[in-house]
Write a protein that binds this DNA or RNA. Sequence first.
RNA 1: GCGGCCGUCGUCUAGCCUGGACUAGGACGCCGGCCUUCCAAGCCGGCGAUCCCGGGUUCAAAUCCCGGCGGCCGCACCA
Length: 575
Amino acid sequence: MSSKDRYLKVVELARRRGFFWPSYEIYGGVAGFYDMGPLGTALKRKLESFWREWFVRRHQDMVVEIETPIIGPARVYEASGHVESFTDPIVQCTRCGRLFRADHLVEEALGIKAEGMDPRELNTLIKEHNIRCPVCGGKLGDVRLFNLLFKTTIGPYTSNTGYLRPEAAQGMFLAFKRVHGVMRNKMPLGIAQVGRVARNEISPRQLLLRVREFTIMEMEFFFDPDEDYSSIVEPIASEKIRIRTGEDKRRGLEKPGEYSVGEAVQEKIIMHPWLAYWMYEASRFLEKLGVPLHKQFFDEKLPEERAHYASQTFDQVVWTERWGWVEVSGHAYRGSYDLSRHMKYSGQDLTVFKPYTTPLKRRRLRIRVNKASIGAEFREKTPKILAELASMQPEEAEAALKEKGYIEVAGVRLTDKHVSIVEEEVVETGKRYIPHVVEPSFGAERLLYILLEYAYSEKDGRTVLKIPAFLAPIQVVILPLVSNHEGIVRKALEIKEMLSNMGFTLYYDDSGSIGARYARADEIGVPYAVTIDHRSLEDNTVTIRYRDTWMQERVPVDMLPSRLRSLLAGKEHLS
RNA sequence: GCGGCCGUCGUCUAGCCUGGACUAGGACGCCGGCCUUCCAAGCCGGCGAUCCCGGGUUCAAAUCCCGGCGGCCGCACCA
């Protein structure tokens, strides 16, 4: 099967059977938007549920999920750095049409710092110095700003700018203080969210892989940067993980190296144990979706490739037949960047208090102030004197008093009549710190495509979509062996009713030959077919047929639901 | 955004170069019926495309020209 065929077959199948298709079709379509059809929606829901199971429920002692709005006030995205970092001045060559960063061109041509200049300044410089297209020498057009944030207005006043979120992360940072409180100050703390985000991509491409609106599955994991977390990777220390380090990348290496998780942490290939831990979880998550470990690795981003908030980033990439290695998740060490910025912009204290196991006792010097004598003597100067005293180091004051017999504050001299230096014991019960954050972030639509590509297979010229049973959008199909036998049909309908009432996702199919119906079900990845035949009428048994092997087993009808449940959960296989 | 290639029933496509006999053909699928004791069997009937959108040339446009939208690939961009 050629690579082109496989991709085209997946797309064709997706449209024909209703997984997904381009949005706004009847108006000619708009690039970068996709509709999810009935099967695509069901599959995506299951994928999201599985992500929750894997990253949230399995870690429920430290990870919780929230939901926050997709529209945010400008202030939030100014604080997060998105408004600044994603507004690039661009300029286009009028001859060859190439786009350039205007500030970069000016810097190169004139050897001056141009970053942060506004478009007008850049325009003037380009015109004055006759800077031309570095590729073809053509004349450059006007400098304009391009930002990947979708902009809107909140309410009727146009001055109240809002942005559609380009990531869910800010919702978690903004809610951190409250969630931390609600979770009774638990640390470390993961806050997860699954939701829509929008990025105004310049050129959406590659089907579902680069779209303008998509579902992100993201977790911000907060922890104390001073704590030694090396023990958290101990249980997985010998597990293997594939990484192409930044260093390897610079040397032009295409292939990743294989490391044990323990080794990657020890040798600082991954800068923090928590980052390593979630990367390991991500690799196994992908494996469960059907992507074997040798078809995925973590690709370290070089400093110049990283987002503005990250000090280390790995892209988790998966092999696709059409596009080669494709990014499905990002794993960033965001440090305290986001919380610090929101503290600065909002004026709120977003630090966490951490009690010491045993309170720390310390002796320290303090300036004791005799306010009565200062007030009596210096009158209206008193507030100023007191303010300056407050910011003075006790050690400094003590030295001055000893040497000179006075300290000079706000133009007056204070002696031991006004101040004295005392040594006192203080008890520190804990410390305050700004948590650091590691962030695993997944694109749901990309995973959906990957899932389909890896599930796609052909057998005897038929399509079989081997979606893992626990993710299959439809779990069971109910088939009467023949449709012109009243007894068989009646029994089949009864069984359909029974299974439907018990909560199975299913459909009933009596059209055409039994082979055609198996084929239809295989194509959309229904893992199990229940067939009712003549023998069913005699001994109340039916057959279960497995999609991947076409093998069958016969079970009594009473046993059918429990048998299906355990098969769907992947706990047992068809014998 | 630029360049190359491309856009016809649900899907895959024939026709386009060389304008008219196209009421746009086929295959698969879909719907109804018959038949059928386990892997897309067969038969009968049916539904389904103003040929991506808009404009132009022409007596006449799926076909030629222009613009737009969309797709793939390359370049650029990319949280």
